[in-house]
Design a protein around this nucleic acid. Structure first.
Lengths: 277, 277
DNA sequence: TTGACAAATGACCGGTTAGTCATTATTATA
DNA sequence: TATAATAATGACTAACCGGTCATTTGTCAA
């Protein structure tokens, strides 16, 4: 139907300027020259409108990007076409891009969050498959490269969406290709491991986390028999985990004891996070 | 006063969870165990509260970061301390960091936008001075490195703020130091020029932009006498700029004519942007 | 011209909000 | 204890919101 398209277009203009929540249905219908009731003939609710917008544009953008990566035959051109394609899409659908970036972090309802996550993970999949194609399956810092690419995209998108300055997308893409290539070929200090990434995507429950921590503590108690203070601290922390025994001061002190051992940085973080210190 | 601090703390917890606009003054006062009226004895309005929060924490974080960069004597440690310090701050003030990131792109009022811009440009200054100290004044891709750093900070902050997974900040900082160093030492295809950066920070008026475009067009008309189609197109576009003459179809066609000349990519972007095509 | 059906309207509803202010409670002072 | 000054309250206002629905308008075929 025609009406639906009109509403989507005008609403997007307003959302880009003022944000979703700051824009009322009244305003949208005024901009369209229709009545408030007519809006609800096309959309069940204001939420359905933004959900439709996200689906409509993200399906477009995501599939375009996927085609680019899939159909570009020369491997050395893929990165360029990826960046150029992405920024072109953002340029073409700039009102949507502005809205999406603005509302990305605002979670109105469960369905909204799920949609954002879905398209984000689709993008991650596309980027990962691209990286694997260009640099091979076993690139050590694969996930870091992926996040670096996302970082570049975010920061530079922001720049050209929210400043009125005209951008040379070709030069931008070229510049980012070089940066990405440098990182992929030479970065040797990875941060994101497969395990960490899996945890981010599928957060473990508190109970599972506790089991994991206890396991590592047992390893440490066995492995660090030469440092009695650290060992004793681990034993006490293990007791505290199984049943809360100590006050925050003692727990903090025990954590300090183990933190200084260079083999215990990771477990210290795990404990700190689990105990919400 | 005590009350003020209490309100700021409790409000921040709620803002981090639900966002600023979704949190009512009622909710805040309930969380504090005070009446609604009491809120307005401490703050003139809800806006003043968030503005105070931003000032309080951003002054803290920004000055801490500045001290780190200033006081670290060994140049090869500055980058690490910068990243580590920044992520530590975000970890320490995670409720604030969450709120700030969520509301960054939402512009409630003029004062809010100004504040966000102010602290953002302070951060940029700190990063730039750090880069200059480490890599020298004349690093060609200085501004790109700065934006890359901002990109890394943003993406990884997001990751550790909005996932419950515990992070090894030491490893993260180390990894980002390596990436930044690689880019600074080897990136040779800059995107952000000083001129472009100045335009972003101090956008020119439409009139100034028009003058600049006309100037470049005159250059092109002189310099591209061998391609009569391109030349003719520029002459017509110049006429159209001085007084709108043609419909969108003709203008688009003229732009297409010049776009394909490899020397005209930049001016095509300028025109496209100015004419809002 | 009529009547049946669909499309469109906008007054209206219940709910929520930021912010106010007359009133009350608490504290300090004389 | 009496009085003045200050702190705190919460019912209240005015505005706005998303969403509804009885009513009107427009458009067909008969």
């Amino acid at each position: 139907m025609m009406k639906k398209q009109l509403i989507m277009e005008k609403a997007l203009e307003l959302f880009a300027m003022q944000g979703f929540e700051a824009t009322s249905v009244q305003q949208i219908t005024e901009q369209c020259g229709i009545s408030k009731g007519a809006f609800y003939l096309s959309f069940k609710s204001k939420d359905e409108l933004i959900l439709s917008l996200i689906d409509h544009f993200m399906m477009q953008i995501t599939s375009e990007l996927d085609c680019i990566v899939r159909d570009t035959e020369k491997t050395n051109e893929v990165l360029y076409k990826f960046y150029y394609g992405n920024f072109s899409s953002f340029y073409k659908y700039s009102d949507f891009a502005k809205t999406f970036i603005k509302e990305q972090t605002h979670s109105f309802n469960e369905e909204f969050i799920l949609k954002i996550h879905y398209y984000d993970s689709e993008l991650e999949k596309i980027i990962l498959s691209m990286i694997e194609r260009i640099y091979g399956e076993n690139l050590p810092a694969k996930l870091d490269i992926m996040y670096s690419i996302k970082g570049f995209m975010n920061t530079y998108s922001h720049l050209f969406l929210f400043s009125q300055v005209p951008f040379d997308l070709h030069q931008l893409a070229k510049s980012l290709v070089e940066k990405t290539d440098l990182l992929a070929k030479h970065a040797a200090v990875p941060f994101l491991t497969e395990e960490l990434y899996q945890n981010i995507k599928h957060p473990v429950t508190e109970e599972e986390q506790k089991e994991k921590i206890l396991e590592i503590i047992d390893q440490k108690i066995e492995g660090l028999k030469d440092d009695s203070i650290v060992q004793e601290s681990f034993i006490l922390l293990k007791k505290h985990l199984k049943e809360p025994t100590f006050g925050p001061a003692i727990v903090k002190g025990l954590l300090e004891n183990i933190r200084h051992n260079s083999h215990c940085k990771w477990i210290t973080y795990l404990l700190q996070s689990y105990l919400k210190m």
